[in-house]
């Protein structure tokens, strides 16, 4: 982490953290075509907290969470999720771990060929195999009500607006009751009102489902609304870690350019 030039902002010490470590990353490095995208990243996510990872486009934010769920394999470093070393898991163990993690994609990634109902049933039928048809139906209706789209059950993804797609995508993610949520740019491409609604929804999900979340964003309003703790990435390195006040009060020019 870089030293701040004018006003050093303290990072939160381990003793102040609320719960157990859900994710611990040490010395993560990842590059593409001889270009280092992540250079020695370390972070911890604690139980019940929302960690916002801020940074401008190309700073490696999305690469970071894709490494956490092993959509990308890191070049170096260790990633422990719920006490398990992600990089040493075999396919079966990885699938078991992924059942406890929800991942909201930037594009929503709804299955185009399926209705909203089928999109929500897809992970449920594969991950919660013991559920009866009645329980599946109840669960689908419950999460749709939670995201405020109970009447969208039979719609196709192409019939949904950008905000609705994000909500349905969030519903598909929380339908499996994950312990950890990873949000990749949840408010990108949405109008300010819908962005605020999604941010509020992220907080509701945290409270209702008791999830621990990493929220990747460059939207300051989303960060302010959702963050318990913020980590800023700059050129593939952790530039600053702290709470929202630390960032707002900082006189560092790079941080000020984000929070102006």
């Amino acid at each position: 982490m870089k030293n701040l030039q004018k006003e050093p902002v303290p990072t939160i010490s381990m003793e102040e953290k609320p719960g157990r470590k859900m994710i611990e990353i040490i010395g993560l490095k990842k590059g593409f075509n001889n270009q280092e995208v992540l250079k020695d990243i370390s972070l911890q996510l604690f139980s019940g907290e929302n960690l916002v990872v801020l940074g401008k486009s190309g700073s490696g934010k999305s690469v970071l969470i894709q490494c956490i769920i092993r959509l990308l394999v890191p070049d170096a470093g260790s990633i422990e999720v719920l006490g398990k070393d992600v990089n040493s898991l075999n396919r079966y163990e990885l699938d078991e771990l992924r059942k406890k993690i929800g991942f909201l994609f930037q594009s929503g990634a709804l299955y185009d060929s399926m209705t909203v109902k089928q999109n929500l049933e897809f992970p449920l039928r594969r991950i919660r195999k013991h559920l009866t048809e009645k329980e599946i139906k109840e669960k689908v209706n419950e999460v749709l009500e939670n995201v405020g789209l109970a009447d969208a059950l039979d719609k196709m993804p192409s019939q949904l607006s950008g905000g609705m797609r994000k909500r349905i995508s969030l519903a598909r993610t929380i339908v499996i009751d994950p312990s950890i949520m990873l949000y990749d740019e949840p408010t990108t491409g949405l109008d300010p009102v819908t962005s605020d609604e999604i941010s509020a929804l992220i907080n509701e999900v945290q409270k209702k489902y008791k999830t621990s979340s990493i929220i990747i964003t460059h939207d300051i309003e989303c960060a302010k609304a959702t963050a318990d703790r913020i980590m800023m990435l700059q050129d593939g390195e952790v530039y600053l870690e702290g709470n929202i006040n630390d960032f707002e009060n900082s006189t560092d020019p790079i941080i000020k350019s984000f929070f102006k």
Partner: peptide, 10 residues
């Protein structure tokens, strides 16, 4: 990203 979504849905 639908293939990735499938991958993370175990």
């Amino acid at each position: 990203e639908q293939i990735d979504a499938m991958e993370v849905s175990a």
